[in-house]
């Protein structure tokens, strides 16, 4: 089996089969990553450009490692040193890069829709590494992978996503991915940070954390940014912590075999206490490990690979 598109722009509209294909492929790569020699020649001769218009540590390193472990040739580009500072348009920049013969572009940008825009001006395969508050599909996939790894099946699990839903691309990709895989998804956050009509995505919406957590299996905690306070959406981070912070005490409402996830970077003591972040139910670092395997799987499948890795 192959993926339908040569791009990965988002999880919205993907089929359960396609997602399972990516997750299954990632399992193989995860096994490879546990070997003493973690490099395979799968993408030898393929040139991948990492186009990061927004600061990123985790995602950029994860993609770069995934590419290198597949033996791809890697070029990194970040906006701070780019010609975008000299007034060149995005279209010109990417077409110039492609003119140097590249095959795949991994893009992170602060504006929603940029990965789609690139599919309109380039022939390369485009992988969305996060666009605005739209989608972050590889994060959504690695979250699914991590959940599936622990529970064997995503279907029927109750998953609560807590925090700044409005500005979170992770929340959107998680919502689509989890819904497609049959999980029961709830959202919880301050009413100013819940985007309008979000319930139409087929999720339950709460502003009372204690209610949202009852009987949940998985809690995905989102980073809360200081900018929200400046934008007037939150009176203070202190108040956010009091009402929405994930503390040990609040975990009593969860199912026994619960899991705590966070896409990072963490604001310790703000959205989550260190005790919970580092506790026995936290899989935050597993998410990071799985991220490399997921990105290897995506790169492999989008470059034309089929289900079985040679």
């Amino acid at each position: 089996m192959k993926l339908k598109s040569k791009h990965l722009l988002g999880l919205e509209g993907m089929s359960r089969k396609e997602i399972n294909l990516i997750l299954d492929t990632a399992e193989t790569f995860k096994e490879i990553l546990s070997r003493p020699i973690r490099v395979v020649p799968t993408l030898r001769g393929v040139t991948v450009v990492n186009l990061f218009y927004e600061p990123s540590t985790r995602t950029r390193i994860s993609f770069e490692l995934a590419e290198k472990r597949l033996s791809a040739e890697v070029v990194n580009f970040s906006a701070a040193i780019s010609s975008s500072r000299k007034g060149e348009t995005l279209k010109d920049t990417v077409r110039n890069i492609e003119a140097m013969k590249t095959d795949m572009v991994v893009v992170r940008h602060q504006a929603s829709g940029v990965p789609y825009f690139l599919t309109q001006c380039l022939d390369s395969s485009i992988i969305n590494a996060g666009d605005g508050a739209h989608e972050h599909p590889t994060q959504g996939l690695l979250d699914l992978f991590t959940i599936r790894e622990k529970y064997k099946n995503v279907k029927g699990l109750k998953v609560v996503i807590v925090g700044d839903i409005k500005y979170s691309r992770v929340a959107r990709s998680d919502m689509w991915g989890l819904s497609i895989m049959g999980a029961d998804v709830s959202l919880c956050g301050p009413s100013t940070l819940l985007p309008v009509e979000i319930d139409k995505m087929g999720v339950k919406v709460y502003s009372d954390l204690n209610k949202a957590l009852v009987g949940a299996d998985v809690v995905i905690v989102l980073r809360i940014q200081l900018e929200r306070q400046k934008g007037g959406l939150l009176p203070s981070l202190r108040e956010y912590t009091n009402k929405f912070g994930i503390t040990k005490d609040r975990l009593k409402r969860l199912n026994e075999n619960f899991t705590i996830m966070h896409p990072g970077p963490i604001n310790r003591g703000v959205e989550i206490t260190p005790e919970v972040a580092d506790g026995p139910h936290s899989v935050i670092l597993d998410q990071v490990t799985n991220g490399v395997a997921i990105r290897m799987a995506v790169l492999y499948l989008l470059s034309g690979g089929e289900g079985k890795v040679e």
């Binding site: 919205e12 929603s112 829709g113 666009d131 605005g132 508050a133 739209h134 989608e135 500005y167 691309r169 959107r172 985007p195 309008v196 009509e197 979000i198 139409k200 995505m201």
Partner: peptide, 15 residues
């Protein structure tokens, strides 16, 4: 426009 589509696309809406 701020509505379901802007929410889906993660774009800042004009209510």
């Amino acid at each position: 426009h701020e509505g379901f589509v802007s929410t889906t696309l993660g774009m800042c809406g004009i209510p």
